[in-house]
């Protein structure tokens, strides 16, 4: 951006966005938020000053920015080995629980929500499960609710599925949970799963939680990588506060918790368990 009229910085723009909308990206990780804002400027052919003007005057445009800035890549059973662990080690522990509360924080277009529901169904745990799924973007939530995904682009969904559920007896076929329509190039989640999750628009950074109950499992995969360290810690504290003792937090395979929180969770395979040890609040 060599334009001499560009007299504000992206940091200042994020402050303006914060002041004129409900959204605060100021504690997102610098490199990635700058990259995303530049992408928005390219896609909409706007200078930073034009972006500021539109942000202040057009609330609908702000929603589009939120959708463009947030990263919404997800897949069914991403990292199959993690899901094998969830299937074989984690979920079976809940088989005598009358209720299992699960929260997918930053669920994007829902693929991991359905991955989890499939495993719950496979273990006969669907009835006692309550599954909440939240995201900052309404657009991806609408997509998640529809449960419709591209077929050819996502052939790896079926490979991942088979790695998790097609190996051990009883083998399960993909078609138990999805209708495949090759001619229209789409796969659709079957209704008995699709209607179960409670999808809600929620900004993890800013808003109070939209539910009162505590959770047995919180999924938040590849969301924290877009936040700076301070914000990461606050969100992990939030998860910690909202887990039952012994509850599980599942992050992305290359997300780690550091410093103080290492004492508040015990890592078991790919799962962080809320430690029962008493700690003073800092």
């Amino acid at each position: 951006m060599q334009n001499s009229e560009e007299d504000i910085t992206i940091k200042e723009y994020l402050q303006i966005l914060k002041d004129s909308s409900p959204y605060d990206f100021s504690e997102y990780s610098d490199n990635s938020i700058y990259r995303r804002i530049h992408k928005v400027m390219r896609d909409y052919r706007l200078s930073l000053n034009e972006l500021v003007a539109k942000t202040k005057s057009d609330q609908e445009f702000v929603e589009q920015i939120v959708e463009a800035v947030t990263v919404n890549t997800t897949e069914l059973f991403r990292d199959p080995s993690v899901w094998v662990y969830i299937l074989q080690k984690l979920l079976p522990q809940f088989k005598n629980n009358p209720n299992i509360n699960i929260w997918h924080a930053g669920c994007s277009s829902g693929q991991e929500v359905y991955s989890n529901l499939i495993l719950l169904d496979h273990l006969g745990l669907l009835k006692q499960s309550t599954v909440y799924a939240t995201d900052i973007s309404q657009k991806v939530l609408d997509q998640a609710k529809k449960g419709v995904y591209k077929y050819r682009f996502n052939l790896n969904y079926i490979e991942n599925f088979n790695q998790v559920l097609g190996v051990n007896e009883p083998k399960v076929d993909f078609s138990k949970y999805f209708d495949i329509n090759e001619s229209e190039d789409r796969i659709v989640v079957k209704d008995f799963l699709r209607t179960l999750p409670k999808f809600m628009k929620h900004d993890l950074v800013q808003e109070k939680l939209p539910f009162y109950n505590k959770f047995d499992i919180i999924f938040c995969r590849n969301v924290l990588i877009y936040f700076n360290s301070g914000l990461q810690s606050r969100i992990i504290q939030r998860f910690h506060d909202n887990l039952f003792p012994g509850g599980s937090m599942i992050l992305g395979t290359h997300e780690a918790i550091t410093g103080f929180f290492k004492t508040k969770f015990v890592k078991n395979g790919p799962v962080y368990l809320k430690s029962n040890v008493f700690h003073f609040k800092y």
């Binding site: 990780s29 490199n31 990635s32 991403r78 990292d79 990588i225 290359h254």
Partner: peptide, 20 residues
């Protein structure tokens, strides 16, 4: 790591992303 973008940051750390 597989399936992640890897970035070098100003403060001498690495960051990951699942962007497109």
């Amino acid at each position: 790591p597989s399936n992640y973008h890897l970035f070098v940051e100003f403060d001498g750390t690495l960051s990951l992303s699942t962007e497109e």
